[in-house]
Nucleic acid binder design. Structure first.
Length: 255
DNA sequence: ATGGTGGGCGACCCA
């Protein structure tokens, strides 16, 4: 079972990319972020033609998340319980017996910005929610655009990024609090090397100069850890014409 | 040099 995450930065623009990548990568489950489509505009028929069911929770212009799956998704949840939030950033469902939570974590803009405070409050609410989810569903995958680079190996220039947005200690502590629920960064179960990234800024020739961060993660619960056979990042779609600024990240779970 | 590119929308906001 191959499970992936991809921030597509507008599903309208990126449908051709998504199609090509689905054919090539053959994932069983995909969490999408930044679809930027309200629900009536979600292209579920086009995606069904590619062999995937869709559940989705979107809004116009900003945010928007979806889960695509080969088999039907059940028990779908589209908000953090008990947390007032206008922004469509979460969708969870049970697929083939695995609970999958797809997050589009708040970017935060800059340390100290009001959006940064919202990011930390949002992550605290997610932590409380996931504590309940992992209790109810021990076989849990939490994936998405976390907008946090877990440690300095995940940053092209740790000195330049030190303390900055996506790398600050409170953000990393908030991610740590999620991992402390009993989740593992699947990529680091298989790869310890620095310099593997999932996002490159459109500006400054970010991809060409490899000015990247690894902020797109697939976390697996302890109960799934032994089944986690491989993990990786598909850099290639980032090199295609008119790409998303993010690359897909994935994990395969053995039966 | 506090820049730059991209998406969506509608003449700025978000990343």
């Amino acid at each position: 079972m191959k499970i992936a995450t991809w921030n597509v930065n507008s599903l309208n623009v990126r449908m051709p990319h998504l199609k090509q990548w689905l054919v090539e990568a053959q994932p069983d489950v995909v969490g999408l972020q930044e679809t930027k489509l309200d629900d009536p505009r979600f292209p579920d028929a086009d995606i069904a033609a590619l062999g995937y069911r869709s559940v989705f929770c979107g809004q116009k212009t900003y945010n928007g998340v979806a889960l695509l799956s080969r088999v039907p998704a059940g028990e779908c949840v589209v908000a953090i319980p008990g947390f007032e939030d206008e922004q469509k950033r979460v969708i969870a469902a049970t697929i083939d017996g695995v609970r999958v939570v797809n997050l589009y974590v708040v970017n935060g803009k800059a340390v100290g910005d009001p959006k940064y405070d919202y990011k930390l409050r949002w992550l605290a609410a997610v932590r409380d929610w996931l504590a309940e989810e992992i209790r109810a569903h021990p076989e849990l995958v939490v994936l998405g655009d976390f907008n946090i680079a877990p440690d300095d190996r995940d940053v092209h220039d740790p000195a330049a990024w030190h303390g900055k947005i996506l790398c600050s200690t409170p953000e990393r502590d908030a991610l740590r609090a999620l991992l402390d629920l009993g989740l593992h960064d699947s990529f680091r179960l298989h790869q310890q090397e620095a310099g593997h990234f999932s996002w490159w800024d459109y500006r400054l020739g970010g991809l060409r100069r490899n000015l990247g961060l690894r902020i797109d993660l697939v976390l697996v619960s302890e109960a799934l850890r032994a089944r986690c056979a491989a993990a990786g990042i598909d850099r290639e779609p980032r090199t295609w014409e008119r790409p998303s600024d993010h690359a897909p990240a994935w994990v395969t779970l053995a039966r």
